[in-house]
Design a protein around this nucleic acid. Structure first.
Length: 420
DNA sequence: GTGACATCGCATAATT
DNA sequence: AATTATGCGA
DNA sequence: GTCAC
């Protein structure tokens, strides 16, 4: 009897007693901040950076695993400054909200939950939100993730694949593996395609977390123009703004060819410009690639070496900008893009853009059209062009490993990227 | 105190 | 059904 | 609104 009840209700109920229908220990505060954020978002003269600041504070507080005891405690978090402090202070004062006090046992449980969340977040597709849900439901290890009822909580294909291939994805990708895959793909698709290995491989790393491929074809010429204005470039994705275009070469030719050849093990996402998923690293046999049937059978049974791979279809015109964006590293990209915005331009993976104001007359003639100008592509074809336009000397890919340099130096601890 | 704040693709959930 | 927001990754 | 300077 006692044994049975323990099996059915494992020890965790005590720590998931946050108010029903909520998911975190600071839900009341978060709701309050979300209202503040929404007010700013609705304001006619809204400050996008202020909205972002609210978002950032909400995020960092939502990741806390315990109730905030005092406004001062929150102030210590990165992203919480005087403004949020004041709001939390007011909230405590006016709402009569009294934070729960933790006893040692509860504190211990919270610590275990924190460890569990960190473990679950190692699975690609599981971030802070999903990890919290899982731990709240009682899932404490990746092993448990593979069993009901937790497996059913993994709703996205990305999460399912992340669990299935977790062991493989923990392995680093060697340069040889990246080269093998890239060469196989070159052999599998028409010779008009050009395949470049980007990412940390191109920066000279001995091993990488994934295989990042840049694919060019003379017939793929689509270069989307940024939406919005310099002060607020829209984040609407290209798929939205493009509406219905003919299926891209990636979807009509590249992906099908690779499927046929039996190296695509699973697709996490697959669009007109980008494919993300798992590749089976093919084994060269003598001077030829092994049997396609053998690979398909291997994928079926989970045998072989699997790695994360990204395919990016890029227009020739965007080659330079795309190489910069897809080579990284993150800190280098941030630095270059900041330089662009400092001189009133916009850099994305499609190119370096300049904003042209419409003249008064133009605006008048357009009638009620309040669009104040248009984006003009300045440079994009080569990395050197783009960097030169920004007043920079060319930087060898191998010298773009800013994260390492800045990581151990003073200041500049801004990186909010993930460990993976 | 003041100037600067990365950008985007895709999948899914939520909302209208 | 269509649009918008969120989550996540890079 | 927050942070680095």
């Amino acid at each position: 009897m006692l044994l049975r009840s323990r099996l059915v209700r494992p020890l965790l109920k005590a720590n998931v007693r946050y108010a029903a229908g909520t998911e975190g220990p600071n839900n009341a505060i978060l709701e309050m901040l979300k209202i503040n954020k929404e007010e700013e978002a609705q304001s006619p003269d809204k400050n996008p950076y202020k909205i972002r600041a609210f978002t950032s504070a909400i995020k960092v507080i939502s990741e806390l695993d315990h109730p905030i005891q005092s406004a001062i405690e929150a102030k210590a978090l990165k992203g919480v400054g005087p403004g949020i402090l004041r709001r939390i202070q007011d909230f405590f004062d006016t709402s009569g909200h009294t934070p729960d006090v933790l006893d040692p046992a509860a504190a211990d449980q919270l610590k275990r939950n924190r460890v569990a969340r960190a473990e679950l977040e190692q699975v690609t597709g599981i971030g802070p939100v999903k990890a919290r849900q899982l731990v709240a439901a009682g899932c404490m290890t990746i092993e448990q993730l593979k069993t009901p009822p937790y497996l059913e909580m993994l709703t996205t294909t990305q999460q399912r694949i992340g669990v299935t291939y977790f062991h493989h994805l923990g392995e680093r990708v060697s340069r040889a593996e990246a080269e093998t895959v890239a060469q196989f793909i070159r052999d599998a698709i028409p010779s008009k395609y050009e395949v470049i290995i980007g990412g940390s491989y191109r920066r000279g790393a001995a091993t990488s977390s994934d295989i990042d491929l840049i694919i060019l074809h003379p017939d793929h010429v689509h270069v989307p123009v940024p939406l919005g204005t310099p002060s607020k470039v829209s984040t609407v994705s290209a798929t939205k703004r493009n509406g219905a275009l003919p299926a891209s070469l990636l979807q009509s030719e590249v992906v099908p060819a690779l499927q046929t050849r039996g190296i695509l093990a699973a697709a996490m996402s697959s669009g007109d410009l980008k494919w993300q998923g798992i590749v089976l690293v093919p084994e060269p046999t003598d001077d030829q690639w092994g049997e396609r049937q053998r690979r398909l059978a291997a994928i079926e049974s989970g045998q072989g070496v699997y790695r994360r791979m990204d395919l990016n279809l890029v227009a020739q015109k965007s080659r330079g900008a795309a190489l910069i964006a897809l080579t990284g590293d993150t800190e280098f990209n941030r630095d270059v893009r900041i330089r662009a915005s400092k001189v009133g331009m916009h850099l994305n993976e499609y190119g370096l853009w300049r904003w042209n104001e419409n003249s008064e007359e133009n605006s008048e003639e357009e009638g009620k059209d309040d669009s104040a100008g248009f984006w003009e592509l300045v440079r994009a074809h080569t990395e050197e062009e783009v960097l030169r336009e920004l007043g920079m000397e060319y930087v060898e890919p191998v010298k773009r490993n800013f994260s390492l340099v800045l990581g151990k130096g003073p200041a500049r601890m801004k990186a909010k990227g993930k460990k993976r």
